[in-house]
Design a protein around this nucleic acid. Structure first.
Lengths: 103, 103
DNA sequence: ACGTCAGATAAGTGTATGCTTATGTTTATT
DNA sequence: AATAAACATAAGCATACACTTATCTGACGT
């Protein structure tokens, strides 16, 4: 849901978590390192991100590996595409990126 | 600021307002039509969207014309581009769109 | 100058949200 | 079986947020 996505990303702590996961999947304890956040808080944030489709989890024995879920990003991209008429022409990075994807 | 953008879009009413403006600039009274929202509420929402760089205003006599500010969308596009590695390959609409822009 | 209209701002209120501490649940280790 | 580790859930609390009513500001028409 669009609502869940934007609500999830409205919190700076959750954006930080998401950013960390984008650099590579890891478990909740690893995510907490250097973050001054309690274990329950992290768990709650991950639940929100998961509900939004931005993060998915995979049990690995006693650990749970969290990683970026492309579905969430796709929803944002889709939302953004609706307003393409207003994108400034100078977003060249985006063009380059999609040129890469075409190969 | 990234924070302002996501916070602004987290509210469904503000997304509706933004969507309406994307179809064409208009003043606050016109925006309220068919929206069951008070005048102060609309004014406050527009202030948040403006602060986020998603909307800009232009005085026209007694009216103020509000319209989509491309700068805000550019910020989102920039944020999204950071996670391009995770975009699913099937976002074809986006590819088509940028192919259009290249012409 | 006066009233009116478009919109902003102020102050108050209920609810949502992010945190805390405490406890539950699941899996591995011994 | 018992303990410990990784994480989830529950309950309570303080703050943020979106709304309301009331008032203010600025621009126009007469």
């Amino acid at each position: 849901m669009e609502q869940d996505i934007f609500r999830a990303l409205a919190d700076p702590t959750r954006r930080t978590i998401f950013e960390k996961l984008a650099a590579g999947g890891m478990n909740a304890s690893a995510l907490r390192e250097g973050m001054a956040i309690s274990q329950p808080a992290m768990s709650q944030h991950l639940a929100v991100l998961r509900q939004a489709g931005l993060v998915r989890e995979e049990r690995q024995g006693r650990f749970i590996n969290y990683e970026v879920d492309p579905d969430g990003l796709a929803l944002i991209a889709h939302w953004l595409a609706k307003y393409r008429a207003y994108w400034p022409a100078r977003i060249d990075a985006l063009k380059d990126l999609l040129r890469d994807m075409d190969q």
